[in-house]
């Protein structure tokens, strides 16, 4: 009864580690078993230690996990609550092989108008690292677009549901650096609408495994009434382009 994923998949939204808020297997082994079950070619991934404990230790764990497995692409995190604004720290992330930076706004409570965060937005300039941020409610995306505009790196908004659609569509016209991830794009015609209004090149596939069910995200793309070419872009090639190629 497993959906056979015939199309090539790159997943921008995966995690591994330990989830303290409820009992669920988020181990690296579990993530890899899902990658194999659904024939996912590439995943951007990050240790949950970065979200819940210490981003420096978490980043080390992420690098170790991705080392030697070309399917796993390391994502770094910086926790603004612990960030002292150093540019060298961000440069180091890039040098060590991280391909993106993720903020865990869904688990870490800080406002957007917050000096360490604003400094991080600035320090990411010129690093060529896409920024992944979880959308937590009305207006967050608007502020992020404003603070990251013109800085030269793409921003991928994760966890966008029906309530984020109009905000993204309006913002996307004036913010070519803004992208939307698919895991919670759950209206009946979200993909048709976004493809028509902003183009499929701005939509990046993500599932949220192993915290989420994979087939929910995949089926919404696979069953959308958009062209096969658009599906291929969303499921794989847009992310490959953003990262300027996969390892």
């Amino acid at each position: 009864m497993v959906v056979i994923t015939a199309l090539k998949i790159a997943d921008v939204n995966t995690v591994f580690g330990f989830f303290p808020k409820r009992k669920i297997d988020c181990s690296l082994e579990r993530l890899i078993s899902l990658i194999e079950k659904y024939r996912i070619s590439k995943v951007l991934t990050i240790s949950l230690k970065s979200a819940f404990y210490d981003h420096v230790e978490g980043n080390e764990e992420t690098l170790r996990a991705c080392n030697g497995d070309s399917r796993l692409i390391p994502v770094a995190s910086v926790d603004p609550r612990a960030y002292l604004g150093g540019l060298d720290e961000i440069e180091e992330l890039r040098k060590r092989g991280f391909r993106a930076v993720r903020l865990f706004t869904e688990f870490q409570s800080y406002p957007l108008d917050y000096a360490p965060l604003l400094k991080l937005f600035k320090n990411l300039e010129g690093m060529d690292l896409p920024l992944l941020i979880y959308n937590t409610g009305y207006g967050l995306m608007t502020k992020i677009a404003r603070e990251t505009r013109g800085r030269g790196y793409p921003v991928i908004m994760l966890g966008c549901s029906y309530s984020a659609l109009s905000e993204f569509i309006v913002l996307s016209r004036e913010n070519p650096h803004l992208y939307i991830e698919t895991s919670l794009l759950d209206t009946p015609d979200a993909f048709e609408l976004l493809t028509r209004k902003v183009g499929s090149s701005r939509i990046i596939f993500g599932s949220g495994i192993p915290l989420n069910y994979f087939e929910s995200s995949y089926l919404m793309v696979e069953r959308a009434e958009i062209s096969e070419h658009d599906k291929e872009l969303i499921l794989y090639y847009n992310l490959e382009d953003l990262l300027k190629g996969f390892p």
């Binding site: 009864m1 497993v2 959906v3 029906y162 759950d186 209206t187 009946p188 015609d189 979200a190 069910y213 994979f214 087939e215 929910s216 995200s217 995949y218 089926l219 919404m220 696979e222 069953r223």
Partner: peptide, 21 residues
């Protein structure tokens, strides 16, 4: 929850779940 949500969303959830046919 259509017409608010996409039927695929919850179908995929059940399909992915590790329960019997």
């Amino acid at each position: 929850d259509m017409t608010l949500l996409n039927p695929a969303h919850t179908i995929g959830m059940i399909m992915s779940s590790e329960i019997s046919k």
